[in-house]
Design a protein around this nucleic acid. Structure first.
Length: 1072
RNA sequence: GGGUGAUUAGCUCAGUGGUAGAGCGCUUCGUUCACAUCGAAGAUGUCGGGAGUUCGAAUCUCUCAUCACCCA
């Protein structure tokens, strides 16, 4: 039964994949030769919430190619699959689902019940991407599928595994070594998810924003002379002022200001440094005064040159406050609302006031006043203080902003300017609104100032100049300008820098080996530019914040118990232990065997119990509970935070292999070989894996990191739902088959290449599959596969000898390309070979032998073709596994599936027959010459025409004689003759011979002259270049010998061709 | 502002010192018994601009321009 005309991918792919899986073809070690080296790839674990996108499709195609290639070569191969638990994304997903199905929300459920819901969700929906990777043909060992939360407490049946143990063990080890610490740090806070997120999860986007300018009056009505000078010292402007002008894009943070800073060299403000100024907001009777300090951070040329310092809400201010010892006052709660806790504002402001005075005293700007006690606030005390005025408490941060602006303006403390000031941008006379900005709001809010609009040049940016024309109508100066604003990449809300207690890894202490590994070449990053980026980041590494205020994740293994020796002040002592039992054992050791230990859920509960306990004790012991008599209640609570997802995925290479147990797999497959991943997670993941694996095992986790870019659309744009240019790889697979998608991915995969996805290319590679299919179909129709022999054929016929050599060449080319991770070169070499050599020439050449012939030559051709096609299937299999496996099955009884076929290792040196190659290349060039002349001269395509050989050398004669059947067939030649070409022939020059097509009655002499003239023109250019080079004595002297030889040989060939063409032209001239 | 990279045929891209290629598209021709998801032939380039090194530069250096990404 003849084969179908095309490959039915939709039908065959699931069937073939099932076949592979059922036969265990992808199992670790399948098809390994005895004593083989291992080859391991760890899949970059997709989020458990994820669905396959084109980036995954690309990334996993490359991994699959490497894995299939090694497996066929007999390596002990493991492709380790798995998923990442993706803290924020998963928690969000489940919360959404609860809301959508009218179930109780996360907080109502409580932690344990919620986590059960997450696990249930994971078990039901978490496998989506696995099925999708299978459709792509990914040959992972699915029996080993891993999960970064496997084995966590509460994990249901089927989620066993010890990944959790690995994560906890590493945390405890690093903690014990002092490499993990807890502290108050400014972190990027996501008010939507109410958790810290890393720098890398923050997207900075330029959005239309506003810059407000406010006056901070000097304390006690003090004044100074404000002078502005130009570079030469000429006074430009001078006035008496009782305030300092401050610009801000976030007025609500003024409430937490701890100081105003100016540059030490800024003479304008020198007179008032060390004085106090007033924050112009809040109840008049409790206005807070803050010191004016110097710090190198403010840029005198920007704005007024004075900067408000809000240490708890801005990264730059944080550094200034740290340097100067300015207290940091937190203003917001975890949801980004203005705080509504603590003592009333008046009381809090009082304390802050004393702290400000104390600062002046400490820094020598003031002396201790009468009856005054300098107050110094600890970090915790400052944090506990709520400086939000009572009427603003509980407001959303953006509402609070609007209120603050309104109040200051009403009080007349906004800096004013003319209504025509081009900086305003917003509608005249109206203070700009303070909407909640967001990337989606961009373009809807106030426009960016268009200074060209009214032709007025912008005013000088220096403050103080804007109110000079008193006659003009004045409005508050609210600049409309684009500002960079941080957004959470998952939540899309504005990120708030927030001072919170977090856990940190001291990255700087463990980064050394990770840097050395790349510097010393033990791990190589491709493209090389990735190495530079890697160094740059690691050399400037910041502490890594690893705590997240989420529930879904590895909970931090730290418990808190009353410190048996500490003062009341920091009475909770952390105990880090792998399990609660061990932690409690520590508590018991500290508090005595008879202590009644109560594990509670929150710090508040623990506090209550501890207060009760303390109350029962003798006050003379000053709260030290070690002196307690008899059993007392000791509250213990566990840190509620979970670890950053990247902390656990950082252990992916060893965690998936069973570490910390010393498993057989760990010994066999670690260190792994290649990591294929997106360059966007070089820091998130790659660098951290390097650091963590080195810290834990002392070994590099992989020797090669292959980085690739983002898959974009045809025009190079990012694919996004909002743009609507997202292409679903599954749709592509449905329409064109997985092989076409894979081949397109492979051919795009040049090192460091830009990835632009094009459906035209997909279609082209689907056609390529069809071409291969039909070559096999032709072979099958001609009994080729019945003649398959064992091993490499050793045929006699020139065409067969030639194609065997060509096959060896392409095998070497493919191996070299894959070894160098030049996937595109491998794909292109195979495309050119299968289509351009096998299909275009070899199949055509074989036709006379297969269709017309019989006997040994036919049999040998069948055998050779069977072998050549088998080689095509084998070499293409890593890239196009489905169609090749299908053809492998259809074209013979096979000992093994193609997925386990032996990868060839024959070489061009063994198999290339140079004489055969020269002969075939000559025949091809003659055929092409004839075809070209015919087509250009409009000789009817179907017409058989005679060919006259004018002259020929020995090699050409032999080649013609031995291949005349092929040449006649493919060039559509009727008869050969030898002799002088008749007048009005078409000239066909080839190497070592000249031919003519006598077609005087068909051709147009003028057109033929033109054709030859054109060819001569081209030749002339080339000859000019070659002669120029060879005539240059410096060329012969400096260029390598083989280059000179090549140029000489080239020149000889071109000259021969030129002679022939000139002769042909001369003959045509005779006709006229 | 810092870093990294890109600029080659109409389009998408290869091309690490020897005189420029592929695929797609385009034009012309073709119902030749594997394939029209095909075949044959053809056209198209101051390799972003300028300077330098070199016998020789798309390739190395400098510079300018434009664009992209990452980090502030």
């Amino acid at each position: 039964m003849p084969m179908e005309k095309t490959f039915d991918a939709a039908e065959a792919e699931p069937r073939l994949y099932r076949r592979w899986e059922e036969s265990g073809a992808f199992r670790a070690g399948a098809n390994a030769r005895a004593g083989a080296n291992s080859f391991t790839i760890m899949i970059p674990p997709p989020n458990v919430t994820g669905a396959l996108h084109l980036g995954h499709a690309f990334n996993n195609t490359l991994q699959d190619i490497l894995v299939r290639w090694h497996r066929m070569r007999g390596f002990d191969t493991l492709w380790q699959p798995g998923q990442d638990h993706a803290g924020i994304a998963t928690q969000l997903q489940v919360e959404k689902q609860l809301a959508a199905t009218q179930q109780p929300g996360r907080r109502e459920l409580g932690r344990d019940a919620f986590l059960q819901k997450v696990w249930a969700w994971k078990q039901e929906k978490g496998g989506t991407i696995i099925g999708q990777l299978k459709r792509l043909g990914a040959s992972c060992d699915w029996s080993r599928n891993a999960f970064t939360m496997a084995g966590a407490p509460g994990a249901p049946e089927g989620e066993e595994g010890n990944f959790h143990d690995a994560v906890i063990k590493v945390f405890v080890d690093l903690y014990d070594k002092g490499l993990i610490t807890r502290g108050k740090r400014l972190v990027n806070w996501d008010p939507h998810f109410e958790t810290a997120i890393s720098d890398l999860e923050v997207e900075n986007v330029e959005v239309p924003g506003h810059m407000w300018h406010f006056k901070y009056p000097l304390a006690g009505g003090a004044t100074y002379t404000y002078v502005e000078k130009d570079a030469d010292g000429t006074v430009l402007f001078e006035e008496e002022r009782d305030y300092i002008s401050i610009a801000t894009t976030r007025p609500e943070t003024m409430l937490g200001d701890g100081a105003v800073a100016v540059h030490p060299s800024d003479e304008r403000y020198a007179p008032i440094v060390g004085q106090l100024c007033e924050i112009p907001v809040g109840p008049k009777e409790h206005r807070r005064l803050i010191p004016i300090i110097t710090d190198p951070y403010p840029d005198p040329a920007f704005g007024s040159g004075a900067v408000k310092i809000t240490g708890a809400h801005d990264f730059n201010d944080y550094a200034v406050a740290k340097r100067a010892g300015i207290p940091m006052y937190r203003l917001m709660d975890t949801a980004g609302r203005m705080r509504d806790d603590g003592v009333p504002y008046a009381e809090a402001a009082e304390v802050a006031q004393s702290a400000a005075r104390a600062w002046l005293i400490r820094n020598g700007h003031a002396t201790v006043g009468f009856a005054e006690q300098p107050v110094s606030l600890s970090e915790a005390e400052a944090d506990a203080l709520n400086l939000v005025p009572d009427h603003l408490r509980g407001l959303d941060r953006f509402e609070a902003r609007a209120k603050v602006v309104e109040e200051i303006t009403a009080e007349g403390l906004a800096v004013m300017t003319e209504a025509t000031d081009p900086r305003l941008g917003a509608p005249k006379g109206k203070p700009a609104p303070a909407p909640e900005p967001g990337p989606r709001a961009a373009g809807q809010t106030a426009e960016v100032p268009d200074q060209a609009r009214d032709g007025t040049p912008p005013l000088e940016p220096e403050e103080g100049g804007e109110a000079r024309d008193e006659a003009a109508q004045l409005v508050p100066l609210v600049e409309a300008k684009p500002i960079m604003q941080p957004f959470g990449d998952r939540s899309g809300v504005v990120i708030e820098p927030m001072l919170t207690d977090q856990w940190f890894v001291d990255s700087a202490a463990i980064v050394g080996p990770a840097l050395d590994a790349v510097r010393e070449g033990r791990t190589r990053i491709l493209p090389e530019s990735g190495e530079r980026t890697y160094y740059h980041w690691l050399e400037n590494i910041e502490p890594w914040c690893i705590s997240r205020q989420l529930w879904w994740g590895h909970r931090i293994p730290v418990w808190y118990a009353p410190d048996p020796i500490a003062d009341d002040d920091d009475r909770w002592a952390p105990i880090c232990a792998p399990t609660e039992e061990e932690a409690l054992a520590h508590v018991r050791a500290g508090h005595g065997e008879d202590a009644d230990i109560v594990v509670v859920e929150t710090e508040a509960e623990a506090d209550a119990i501890l207060r009760e306990t303390l109350a029962t004790l003798d006050t003379a012991t000053e709260g030290r509970i070690r002196q307690a008599q008899g059993p007392i209640r000791i509250p213990v609570w566990r840190d509620p935070d979970v670890l950053d997802t990247w902390f656990s995925s950082g252990l992916w290479p060893i965690g998936t292999l069973g570490w910390p147990e010393e498993t057989e797999e760990l010994k066999r497959y670690f260190p792994t070989d290649v990591l294929v991943t997106g360059q966007d997670i070089l820091f998130f993941w790659v660098a951290r894996m390097m650091m963590m694996q080195l810290a834990v095992t002392g070994q590099e986790p992989f020797h090669t990191v292959y980085l690739h870019g983002l898959v974009r659309d045809e025009k190079g744009k990012k694919m996004s739902k909002t743009t609507g240019n997202v292409i679903d790889p599954l749709d592509v697979i449905d329409e064109y088959g997985a092989d076409a998608l894979r081949f397109a991915n492979t051919s795009m995969a040049s090192i460091g290449g830009v990835l632009k996805f094009s459906l035209d290319r997909i279609k082209g590679y689907r056609n390529f599959g069809t071409k291969l299919w039909n070559a096999c179909r032709f072979a099958e129709m001609n009994g080729v596969f019945e003649a398959r022999g064992a091993g490499v054929p050793r045929p006699q016929a020139t065409v067969n000898r030639w194609i065997v050599g060509e096959t060896a060449r392409v095998r070497e080319e493919v191996d070299a390309a894959l070894a160098a991770y030049r996937f595109n070169d491998a794909a292109n070499a195979l495309y050119a070979f299968v289509w351009g050599v096998v299909c275009d020439w070899y199949v055509e050449f074989s036709k006379p032998l297969l269709l017309d012939g019989a006997g040994e030559e036919t049999r040998e051709t069948q055998e050779t073709m069977a072998w050549v096609l088998d080689q095509c299937l084998i070499l293409l299999h890593p890239i196009m596994p489905f169609i090749t496996e299908e053809l492998w099955g259809l074209t013979g009884e096979r000992a093994k599936l193609l997925v386990h076929a032996d990868w060839p290792d024959y070489t061009a040196a063994d198999l290339v027959d140079e004489a055969a190659e020269a002969e075939m290349r000559w025949a091809i060039s003659l055929i092409e010459g004839v075809r070209s002349a015919r087509a250009q001269m409009n000789v009817p395509a179907g017409l058989y025409v005679p060919l006259v050989m004018e002259q020929a050398d020995e090699a050409a004669r032999t080649a013609l004689a031995r291949n005349d059947v092929l040449i006649k067939r493919l060039a559509r030649i009727g008869e050969f003759s030898e002799g002088a070409p008749p007048r009005g022939s078409l000239a066909v020059p080839v190497r070592g011979a000249s031919f003519a097509l006598p077609l005087a009655d068909i051709i147009d002499v003028g057109a033929e002259k033109e054709r030859i003239g054109k060819a001569l023109g081209k030749l002339g250019k080339e000859l000019g270049g070659l002669r120029g080079r060879l005539n240059n004595p410096n060329f012969a002297a400096s260029a390598p010998e083989e280059v000179v030889e090549e140029a000489k040989a080239n020149l000889a060939l071109r000259e021969e061709e030129e002679t022939q063409l000139k002769a042909a032209l001369a003959r045509l001239e005779e006709i006229g």
